[in-house]
Simulated assay, not measured.
Amino acid sequence: MNPLRHALKEWAVAIRAMERGLTALAVRKGGIREKAFAVERERFLLFPSYEHQNPEQLKPGFHGILEETRGGRDDGPVRFTSFAEVHRAYEISDEETLQALDPYHVWTREYAESRLKWRPKKPLTILVLRNYLLPEPVEIPYSESYGGCKSWIPLERGIPVEGARPAIGDAEFERLTAPALRVLETAKAAPVG
């Protein structure tokens, strides 16, 4: 398996929840510097972000995981613990579908709805991700190019992922994602890659 050189910036708490098999969904609209969100790659590292994590925007059941991420810094060394493969990607624009997905992601209903309403002419992208744990965490120095409100981070060097293993088994992943995939079966597929 080739080293990965691209990463998706995501709340550290959401990454840990994916690594533990508690969710497989990422809800994306793009960063302030981006005109829209596009799924650039099928496989990418998960780049932990700490700056915007807010307990009021997170369901109470994930507050314990949030506490575990306290002290992380966006301008310090970057520690990678997993990568993701896009299992499916969809675009939604209606509150009804988003509300039906509420049980399957980490964010509060209000925060998810605020993401849908931000830049209302652009759809919200729902990523169904299969998470893979690296054999050991890999830490790299922080670079100024990694900063800012953007989704995709091209890394200065590739991160080896050889020996990574699925965070959860195939049957458990199917059980975890099946209810959300039923909600999304009529949604528009988002282009990947």
Rank of each mutant, 00 (worst) to 15 (best):
H105K: 02
Y104W: 13
D94R: 07
K117W: 08
W107S: 14
V106R: 03
A112F: 06
E110Y: 10
P103T: 13
A112H: 04
K117C: 01
W118H: 09
T97E: 06
S93Y: 01
Y111G: 03
W107Y: 15
P123N: 11
L116T: 01
Y111H: 15
T125V: 14
R119H: 09
L124P: 07
L98D: 06
Q99E: 15
L101R: 00
L116R: 03
Q99T: 15
L98Q: 08
I126A: 07
R109Q: 11
D94W: 06
R115Y: 09
L124M: 10
E110M: 04
A100L: 13
Y90T: 10
Y104D: 05
K122R: 15
E110Q: 15
P103F: 14
T97V: 11
Y90C: 02
K122G: 00
K122M: 11
Y90N: 09
I126L: 12
D94V: 04
W107M: 13
R109V: 08
L101T: 03
A112E: 10
S114W: 12
E110G: 12
R119W: 02
Y90S: 06
R119S: 11
H105P: 05
R115T: 10
P103S: 14
E110P: 04
P120A: 08
A112L: 04
H105I: 05
T97I: 01
L116K: 03
E113N: 11
W118I: 00
P123M: 11
Y104T: 06
E96C: 01
T108A: 07
H105F: 14
Y104A: 08
K117V: 00
R119Y: 03
Y90I: 09
H105M: 05
